[in-house]
C-alpha cells in the first residue's frame, strides 16, 4: 500500500496472479494515460495508439508471471507498448504517419502567447512525425514522458550512450525545423 492507501504495483501483480482478474483494472487505470500519450506521439494517431495500448495490456496480462520485477511494472509496460508501436510502424510504409492527433489549432481570439504556443506545439508535433522511429521514441520517452536514461534503457533494450545520441539528434532535427519556421 502507498501513503494514499492504493495498492502497490507488486500487490496488484500478486493479486492478479492469484486469480483476482479484476485487479488488472488497477493496472489499466494507473498507466493507461501515460501509455496512450506515448503511443499517440509515436504513432500520430489516437486510434492506432488505442490499439497498440490495448494489445500491449492484454499481452502484459498473459505474460504477467514473466514480470521479473513487479515494483517496476511501469517500465515493463512501456517496454511492451513500445514493441507494439514498433510493430504498428513496421506495418506502415516509411514516413507514413498520420497527423490526426496534431495539437488543436488555437482560437484567433486567444492571446498572442497562446497562439505562439499552439503554433509551436503543432510544429514540434509535425517535426516529431518526421523523425525516424528510434529517434522519435527516444525523444518522447525523455522529453514527453520524462523518463530517466536508466528507465529508457530498460524499456528499449538499448545502451544509454546510444539513447543519448538519439535524443541529441532528435533535438537537433527539431531545432532545425523550428528555425526554418522562425
Amino acid at each position: 500500500m502507498d501513503v494514499n492507501g492504493a495498492p502497490s504495483d507488486a500487490e496488484i501483480v500478486a493479486r492478479v496472479l492469484a486469480g483476482d482478474t479484476e485487479a488488472f483494472g488497477f493496472v489499466i487505470r494507473r498507466y493507461e494515460a501515460g501509455l496512450l500519450r506515448f503511443a499517440t506521439r509515436m504513432l500520430g494517431s489516437r486510434d492506432a495508439a488505442a490499439d497498440a495500448v490495448a494489445e500491449g495490456l492484454v499481452r502484459a496480462y498473459r505474460h504477467l508471471a514473466s514480470c521479473r520485477d513487479p515494483e517496476r511494472l511501469r517500465t515493463w509496460l512501456y517496454r511492451i507498448v513500445t514493441n507494439r508501436c514498433k510493430s504498428h510502424l513496421a506495418r506502415r510504409s516509411v514516413g507514413d504517419v498520420p497527423l490526426d492527433e496534431a495539437p488543436p489549432l488555437a482560437d484567433p481570439s486567444d492571446g498572442e502567447a497562446t497562439l505562439e504556443r499552439a503554433e509551436q506545439l503543432a510544429l514540434v508535433q509535425r517535426a516529431l512525425t518526421g523523425l525516424s522511429p528510434d529517434k522519435r521514441e527516444a525523444f518522447v520517452l525523455k522529453h514527453v514522458e520524462g523518463l530517466s536514461y536508466e528507465e529508457m534503457a530498460a524499456i528499449t533494450g538499448e545502451r544509454i550512450p546510444t539513447l543519448k545520441m538519439r535524443v541529441h539528434r532528435a533535438r537537433e532535427a527539431l531545432l532545425k525545423v523550428l528555425e526554418e519556421h522562425t
Binding site: 494515460a33 496512450l36 489516437r46 495539437p103 504556443r117 508535433q125 522529453h143 520524462g146 531545432l175
Partner: peptide
Amino acid sequence: LVQAADRAPV
C-alpha cells in the same frame, strides 16, 4: 525547444 513538446494528456 524541449518544453515545446506536447505533454498534454491525451
